[in-house]
Amino acid sequence: MRQTHLKRIGLIGLLALVGIGLWQGRSLDPQQLMQWIDGLGPLAWLAFIVLYAVATVAFLPGSLLTLAGGALFGPVLGTFVNLTGATLGAVLAFLAARYLGADWVRARAGARLGAILDGVEAEGWRFVAFVRLTPLFPFNLLNYALGLTRISLLPYLLATWICMLPGAIAYTWLGYVGREAAAGGEDLIRKGLLAMGLLVAVAFLPRLVKRWKEGQGPHWSIDDLHRRREEGETMTLLDVRDAKDFNGKLGHIPGSLNIPLPELAARLEELRADGHALAVVCNTDKRSAKAVQQLQRAGLDNAILVIGGVQAWKGRGWPLEQR
Rank of each mutant, 00 (worst) to 15 (best):
Q3L: 14
T4F: 06
H5S: 10
K7T: 08
L14Y: 11
A16G: 05
A16F: 08
A16R: 00
L17Y: 02
V18R: 08
I20E: 04
G21Y: 05
G21K: 07
L22H: 03
L28V: 15
Q31D: 14
P42V: 09
A47D: 06
I49C: 08
I49D: 06
Y52H: 12
V54R: 00
A55Q: 04
T56W: 01
A58Q: 06
A58V: 07
F59T: 07
P61S: 02
A68Q: 09
G70I: 11
A71L: 05
L72K: 06
L72C: 05
F73R: 10
G74H: 01
P75S: 05
V76P: 03
V76Y: 11
N82P: 11
L83Y: 03
L83P: 04
T87M: 07
L88N: 01
G89V: 05
L92G: 07
A93Q: 04
F94D: 10
G101R: 01
D103R: 15
D103S: 14
V105I: 15
G110Y: 05
A111S: 15
R112L: 06
L113D: 04
G114D: 01
A122V: 11
E123R: 12
R126E: 13
A129S: 10
F130K: 02
V131S: 09
T134M: 09
L136D: 00
F139T: 02
L142P: 04
N143E: 07
L146I: 07
L146G: 03
G147Q: 02
L153D: 08
L154G: 03
L154Y: 08
P155V: 07
T160C: 12
M164Q: 11
M164T: 13
L165E: 11
L165G: 10
A168I: 13
A168W: 12
Y171C: 06
W173K: 05
W173N: 14
W173E: 09
E180Y: 00
A181K: 01
A182D: 09
A183I: 01
G185A: 15
D187N: 15
D187C: 02
L188R: 08
L194H: 09
L198G: 03
L199V: 12
A201P: 00
A201F: 08
F204S: 12
P206K: 11
R211I: 12
E214K: 15
E214G: 10
E214V: 13
P218L: 13
P218K: 15
H219R: 15
I222T: 14
H226I: 03
R227E: 13
E230Q: 15
E231S: 10
E233H: 13
T234A: 15
M235C: 04
L237T: 00
L238D: 05
D242A: 03
K244A: 03
D245L: 01
F246W: 09
N247I: 02
G251F: 00
G251I: 00
I253Q: 02
S256G: 02
A266G: 00
G275W: 06
V281I: 15
D285P: 10
K286E: 04
S288A: 13
A289C: 05
A289I: 06
R297A: 15
G299K: 02
G299L: 04
L300R: 04
D301N: 13
N302T: 09
N302E: 07
A303P: 05
A303K: 03
I304Y: 04
I304M: 06
I307Y: 09
G308A: 04
A312N: 14
K314N: 05
G315M: 09
W318F: 14
P319S: 07
